[in-house]
């Protein structure tokens, strides 16, 4: 279970987010650009710091303003798929996929390697392991980003506009793959979108409510 209750002051408004996502469920944050969707994801991942509130994951605090807790991104076990995928351009597909296993040893590393092999085969990109990201199509890049995030066995998965950069035919296919993720991995998944078709994937959809100088995402 992911519990989020945060507030962050942005240049043009104050952003409030208040929701919970149980393991195995997908929550979609659907709203126009500039409504703070990506900021919420970055706060969950530890890439930005909220001004107030708390974030807990499976009962463990990731952020708690009152207690002065703010776990760094590296220690949050958050899988993050960036909007433009953010693949490491200087590394091959296989090196990208294994990046999260740096510093792991023994059984943990073995399990990660097995997961990587399995995911590469399942998403049908096993033959691309020696390519560089610049040599991949949009759909292939998206899959590499997703596999890279999953190889570390994340406790929560965050997807920032995962289908925005893809053409329509590909979208339908990847939508199906994303739909199966929460139940299969038994983790909470938060997806950000400005397109209403992605909402069909979600167990629940949140929309922003603007009042005065505040934008609230409340369940």
């Amino acid at each position: 279970m992911l519990v989020v209750e945060i507030e962050k002051r942005l240049p043009h408004f104050t952003l409030r987010a208040n929701f919970t996502v149980p393991a195995g469920k997908l929550l979609a944050l659907a709203g126009p650009s500039g409504s703070g969707k990506t900021t919420i994801l970055e706060c969950l991942a530890g890439l930005q710091r909220p001004d107030a509130g708390h974030i807990t994951l499976e009962g463990q605090p990731l952020f708690a303003a009152a207690a002065g807790i703010n776990l760094p991104a590296a220690r949050r076990r958050v899988g993050f798929v960036f909007q433009a995928y953010a693949l490491f351009e200087h590394l091959t597909v296989w090196e990208n996929v294994l990046y999260g296993l740096w510093g792991l040893r023994g059984e943990e590393k073995e399990a990660g390697l097995r997961r990587a092999e399995g995911l590469m085969a399942r998403f049908g990109i096993g033959h691309l392991r020696n390519r560089f990201p610049a040599q991949l199509s949009g759909g292939e890049r998206q899959r590499v980003a997703l596999i890279r995030a999953l190889v570390r066995d994340p406790a929560v998965l965050l997807l920032d506009e995962p289908l925005a950069a893809l053409d329509r035919g590909l979208r339908e296919q990847l939508r199906q793959e994303i739909k199966e993720l929460p139940a299969e991995w038994r983790i909470p998944v938060v997806l950000v979108t400005h397109c209403c078709c992605e909402e069909r994937l979600a167990t629940r959809v949140l929309r922003p409510v603007r009042s005065g100088g505040t934008v609230s995402w409340t369940a």
Partner: peptide, 26 residues
Amino acid sequence: DPDQENAARTLGAGELLVFFTVTLPL
């Protein structure tokens, strides 16, 4: 690209590792 550095952070890399494996090579 700051997103590539952030991606490394979410993948468990500390700041030193981010610098030597992502920032510097890019």
